[in-house]
Simulated scan of single mutants.
Amino acid sequence: MAEWKEYNIHINREATEAVSNILLELGSSGVSVSDRKDFLTLPEYGFDTLWALDENDFPVDGVLIKGYFYEEPAENKTREVLVERIEALKAFDLDIQDFKVETEDVIEEEWANAWKKHYHPVPVTRYMTIVPQWEDYEKQHDEEKIIYLDPGLAFGTGTHPTTKLCLQALESNLRGGEYVLDVGTGSGVLTIASALLGASSIDAYDLDDVAVKSALDNVNLNQLDAEIAIKPNNLLNGVNVQADMIVANILAEIILMLVPDAYKNLKPGGLFLSSGIIIEKKETVLDSLKKSGFEIEQIHQMSDWIAILARKPEEDE
């Protein structure tokens, strides 16, 4: 009977995205995050969540990140490498002084499909609903847009505050016909939302091959492959285009590296939407955007997370 090794990392909230990516880069078949704030805070646009929540599953402080590895050999050094990679995040000024890594064996027969019963459709904006691919779901109103995702795939389900902030900003600012760049696409949820909101062309990039595969699968699930191109790339390195909008839902430290290339690849008047910014890094990101020439249009907050919408000035301003 096949066994999986479950890795449980108890760490502070700011490191969520980075540790999730490390697990996936090491070969995890999926990642889940338990954050007590998700349990205690009701969604803005409904009372359901994609994952049916049980308070006992949530740590009192920090987050619990789980990764799953299939039939590891006895000599496998995944745990050792995982700890080393997490320690290396200190170079990015992440507060990870105290974290714990534990492992547990999981029998595939008991786990492989049982988790699906906990997932349900969830409204993430006034007009967008994320639906697990196996769920039968009918639109609640004519203007509702449905994003189908496979929550078993990596890089999240679209319900994290950073992603919700991006989805709301996309819904408010896309008018149709835009050329959009999605940097660090992950599951592809922002790319899919952009297409559903009328963007005529989207180029999505991610450095990790697992993320590229995840995004491609979800784009195909939504039958949007004609509008979307997903490519492996390190941020916007080597990209030279003129986009109407660039969206990046990644760590604040990575956004700081991206800002100059984002400015270069936007049309005059184009928008740069950045999220994944913990509140303590807000002013640092704002300063970087302003120094590069951006004008700050909007700042939005949900829980401890910030999203910033900035505009490249028109040429005659």
Rank of each mutant, 00 (worst) to 15 (best):
P132T: 05
F155I: 03
V122F: 01
G158D: 05
Q140R: 15
D136W: 12
E110M: 10
Q140E: 15
V122D: 02
E109Y: 07
T129W: 02
H160K: 08
K164Y: 14
E135H: 14
T125C: 07
K116C: 07
D142Y: 09
K139L: 10
V122R: 00
N113R: 08
A169F: 10
Y137G: 06
Q133V: 14
L165W: 11
Y137Q: 05
D150M: 01
A114V: 13
P161Y: 09
Q133E: 15
P132L: 01
E104V: 08
A154I: 01
E144S: 02
L149Q: 01
K164Q: 15
Y119R: 00
W134C: 05
L149H: 00
P161W: 06
H120I: 06
P123A: 14
E144R: 01
T159Y: 12
T125E: 03
F155W: 02
W134E: 11
V122P: 00
A114E: 15
G156D: 05
L153F: 10
C166P: 10
W134V: 08
L167D: 09
T157G: 05
K145Q: 13
K116T: 10
L153E: 07
A114P: 00
A114I: 14
K164D: 04
E171H: 12
I146M: 02
C166S: 13
L174D: 11
P121A: 06
Q140T: 12
W115K: 04
D142L: 11
I130M: 09
P123C: 05
P132G: 02
G158P: 07
L167K: 06
H118Y: 15
I130Q: 03
Q168W: 12
R126D: 14
I146H: 05
Q140W: 08
I130W: 05
K116M: 12
W115S: 06
Y119A: 03
D136T: 14
Y119K: 03
V122A: 13
V122G: 02
P151K: 00
E110N: 13
W111R: 06
D105I: 11
T159E: 14
I146N: 02
A154E: 02
V124T: 07
Y137C: 07
L174F: 12
K117D: 15
T162L: 01
E108P: 02
V106S: 08
V106H: 05
G156H: 04
K145C: 01
R126K: 15
T157Y: 02
H141T: 07
D136V: 13
R126C: 01
E110Q: 13
V124Y: 07
V124H: 02
E108Y: 07
L153C: 05
